Computed example of a mutant assay.
Amino acid sequence: MTMSTRRGFVGLMSAFACTSLASRGLAQAPAVCSDPATLPLSQRSRRRALGYTSPSNDPQKHCSLCAFFTAGAGACGTCQMLSGGAVEATAVCTSFTKKS
């Protein structure tokens, strides 16, 4: 092997290792569909009134299983109870109604 081939191989392996580590970190990061600090006061108040919690403590109750949830990109969606506000699929609120 020449020096340039070894350098290329080591560079390729380094890039692969970094990509693997980065993708693992992203896969474990929780979904963030909206920043609560940037939500309008009406949305923050409605979430508080409905007991919106992310993530849900009950594996049988979360937004992706709710009749008011509409799936969006990734692990995000919208909720009719929150006037179409963005929610995480793993969240839940007191208005949870299981899809039929």
Rank of each mutant, 00 (worst) to 15 (best):
M1G: 12
M3L: 14
M3C: 03
T5I: 13
T5G: 07
R6H: 00
G8Y: 00
G8N: 05
V10R: 11
M13E: 01
A17N: 02
A17C: 13
T19P: 00
S20H: 10
A22G: 07
S23R: 11
R24I: 08
R24G: 05
G25Y: 09
A27S: 10
A29S: 09
P30C: 08
A31C: 03
V32T: 13
P36A: 07
A37H: 08
L39Q: 03
P40R: 14
P40H: 13
L41C: 05
S42P: 12
Q43E: 15
S54H: 11
P55D: 05
P55M: 06
N57G: 10
N57L: 10
N57S: 15
P59G: 14
K61R: 13
C63R: 13
C63V: 03
L65T: 02
L65Q: 10
C66A: 12
A67P: 15
A67F: 08
F68A: 08
T70K: 14
A71W: 06
A71N: 12
A73H: 03
A75Q: 11
A75G: 10
C76H: 05
C76A: 01
G77R: 03
G77T: 01
T78H: 13
C79F: 09
C79N: 09
Q80N: 09
G85C: 07
E88M: 08
E88R: 07
A89I: 03
A91W: 01
V92A: 13
V92K: 00
C93N: 06
T94N: 12
T94Y: 06
S95M: 04
S95D: 04
T97Q: 14
K99E: 12
K99S: 04
S100V: 15
S100D: 14
